[in-house]
Every structure is written in structure tokens, then in C-alpha cells.
Design a protein around this nucleic acid. Structure first.
Lengths: 206, 206
DNA sequence: AAAAAATGCTACTACTTAGTAAAAGGTGTT
DNA sequence: AACACCTTTTACTAAGTAGTAGCATTTTTT
């Protein structure tokens, strides 16, 4: 049992370091973005050396992809653990609030649609794409339920709703409101949800 | 008049080439983004050589900044030429439709909030920032008018409306709807305006 | 037609950064 | 106490790109 015990201990330490690397990468991606983030940055932030970093992830692309995959897994887990009493629209609101809270606490936005190279990198990863599709189908189902329940505007096609919904998770208005608007995080979330679902126009006017 | 005529003619040709360079840069920025765009790309797309390119703009940053400045000037000009019969909300809708139309026809989004380095580059340019502030104040005035006219939801602060409005001009949902949704450009614009101002939620439900 | 001016081209420098090799140093195991 | 393994450090290679110098060429002007 000596060999097995030793290996398992080593593996545990290895996994722990890997999580630290993913956390460090998340912070660096959130602050500098993919292009300005160097592997030396990540290694330094994680407290290990660059060659050690390459023991875990064999390229910068793979590292960033793994970070995004973990994010998708977190989202899927959050959806699975949602309060069963929520209405379909309630679930959508709740998930968006969670995504914005993640971003406001230093995490990443879901859609890294920002840079063409990042998007290309992700779409080349089968593991990422399959998870994205799975999440997309889950949300598609919820949107359909919400429309049937009369909670979402019937005249809007489901894909218009879904893509606009995704876009809200990476909406730059969040950063502007925090930097220039001086709102507290929860106020920002409340306003973002309000604008997203209720719109800007007054119900009487317009 | 020989010398003056010659110089003025040269200047005209110079200006024409400069506009061609700006157009080429706009296309390259829209397709590849700032980081993946090389100066060789721009020179080739504009049909001139790289050293000639540097006769016009002394760095990549300056070139990209000038492109963004021209975009802001276009927006300001569009606002100034708007139909005087439009209501405040009508002006906001009309301007957003114009911005989305520009993007869909191969132009740039207004907010290059995507990459931290691009944002830093722009905020370091006094000429860019002063134009952005001027446009911001103009739109602030229109938003105030719309709120007073009861066209915008009174409970939303003006800055929440404004920053969300800006974010719609660079909303990635546009690209997704074009690529995956297979909508015609004007349908995309109509849906984006609908979601932005009326929201997703049904007025009766929710 | 000849001269002058600008442009284009080729080749170069300087710099950054992804990714790697090899030796030095710990840390726990036996 | 000696050993085996992993990590770190240092230094390097390779590749890409912003920006420039100098020569060849074309066009424009006279």
C-alpha cells in the first residue's frame, strides 16, 4: 500500500496545484485579457515556475480553454442545484444574477466573444464545445417553458432571447457602472436584471 | 499659383490615401481585432507599403485611435442630422439602429471595451476622450428628455440607461444572430431594438 | 526629354514571448 | 544516512511583429 498511498498523495498535491493555476489564470484573464496575459504572469501568480506550469498544461491555449471549461461546469452545477420552486423565468433571472456576481467578484465573463482568436481557440476544443452545447440546450428548454408560461414575450424567437441573454453575462455595462456609476455590486445586478428583462422603455409611454 | 496648386494637389492625394488607410484599418479591426491585425495587413489591404503607412500614422496605436475617433465623429454627425420630428426615445432608437447597421456592414462597434489594452490606448488619447465625453453629454441630454416625456422607465437612473445603451452597440448577440440565427440584417436590428427597449419579459406575466 | 520628388521594396533591428533543456536544490521515503 | 523523485532556476531557442534604413522605381513636373 506504500506505492499506492504515495502516488495518491502526490496526485492530490498535483491536483491542488492545478486548481491554484486555474484560479491564477482566471484572475489574470479577468484583469489583463488573453493577449496581455503571459505564461510568466500565470506562473508567478500561481507561485510556481514556468516549466512546472507546462507540466500541467501543454500550451497557453489549453490552459485558457480549461479555465473556460471549468466555468461552464460551474454554471451547469449551479443550474442543477437551483431551487425547484423557481419559475422558468425565475431560474433565468437567478442564473444571470449568479453569472454577474461571479464577474463582479473577479471572475470571468461567460462569453469571451471579445477576441476572434479566443473564440477560435475555444471552438477548436471539442470538450469546450460539447459543454457549451449541453448548457445551451438546457437553457433552450427553460426559455421554452418560460414562453409557454407567458413569462417571456411570445413574439420574440427563442434564439433571439437566448443570444441576448448570453450577451448580458459579458455586458460591459457592468464594468462601467462599477467604475463610473459607483454602485454597490448588488445594485448593479438588480439594475442589469431590470434592464435585461423589463427593458428601458416605460410601459405606458414609447 | 504653380507651387500652391501643386502642394494642394499633393495634399489632396495624401488625404485620399489616408482615408483609404483608415477604411482598410476599419475592415481589419472588424475582422481580426486589434491584436491580430498587423501593420503589414493594413498596408496590404490599403494597397500601400508599410513605410508609406508610417508616413501617415506614426504607430499602430495612433492608427487605431484615429479610426475610433472618425467613428465617434460619424456618430456625432448622424445625431446632428437626425429628423427633428423624432421624439427623444425615437432618436435613441434611430441612433442605435444606425450603429448596428454600421457594424453589420463590416464596420466597427463603438465600444472597444473588449480588450484592456485597447481601452487603455484610447483613454490615453485626449482627442478621443474629449469626443467621447461630448457624445456622452449629448446622449445624456436626450435620455433626460426621454425620461421627462415618460418614454423611459422613471425608476432607472440615467447612467444605467446610458451604459446599457452603449453596451448594445457592441452586443455580441448581433454576431450570433447573424451566424447561427440566419436572420437578415434588418430583422436583427429590429429584434435588438425590441429586446433593448421593451425587454424580454412579457408585460402581463413575470 | 530630363530632373526631382515621392513611393515601393527588400532587408534589417530590436523586442517580446511561447515553449524547452539541463543542472541545482529540496523533500519525503526507505 | 543514502536515494529517488519532483521542482526550481537559469538560460536558451524559435517565431512573430513593430518600426526603420537605403536603394530601386515610377510618376510628376518643367
Amino acid at each position: 500500500m506504500g506505492i499506492i498511498g504515495r502516488l495518491s498523495f502526490k496526485d492530490q498535491a498535483f491536483k491542488l496545484r492545478e486548481q491554484a493555476v486555474l484560479d491564477a489564470t482566471t484572475r489574470m484573464l479577468a484583469s489583463k485579457g488573453f493577449d496581455l496575459m503571459t505564461m510568466d504572469d500565470v506562473a508567478g501568480e500561481a507561485g510556481i515556475s514556468k516549466p512546472s506550469l507546462y507540466k500541467h498544461f501543454k500550451s497557453k491555449d489549453e490552459l485558457a480553454t480549461e479555465v473556460m471549461i471549468r466555468l461552464l461546469d460551474d454554471a451547469q452545477a449551479y443550474l442543477a442545484a437551483q431551487d425547484a420552486a423557481l419559475s422558468p423565468l425565475g431560474r433565468l433571472r437567478d442564473l444571470l444574477a449568479w453569472a454577474l456576481r461571479v464577474r463582479l467578484s473577479g471572475g470571468l465573463p461567460f462569453l469571451p466573444s471579445t477576441s476572434p482568436q479566443v473564440r477560435g481557440m475555444l471552438t477548436r476544443s471539442l470538450r469546450y464545445v460539447s459543454r457549451a452545447i449541453k448548457l445551451h440546450k438546457t437553457l433552450q428548454g427553460i426559455v421554452e417553458q418560460a414562453k409557454e408560461a407567458g413569462e417571456l414575450r411570445a413574439e420574440l424567437p427563442a434564439d433571439v432571447i437566448l443570444y441576448s441573454y448570453y450577451a448580458r453575462t459579458c455586458d460591459p455595462a457592468v464594468e462601467y457602472l462599477r467604475v463610473y456609476g459607483k454602485y454597490a455590486d448588488e445594485e448593479i445586478i438588480r439594475h442589469m436584471l431590470g434592464v435585461c428583462f423589463e427593458g428601458m422603455a416605460d410601459r405606458a409611454g414609447g
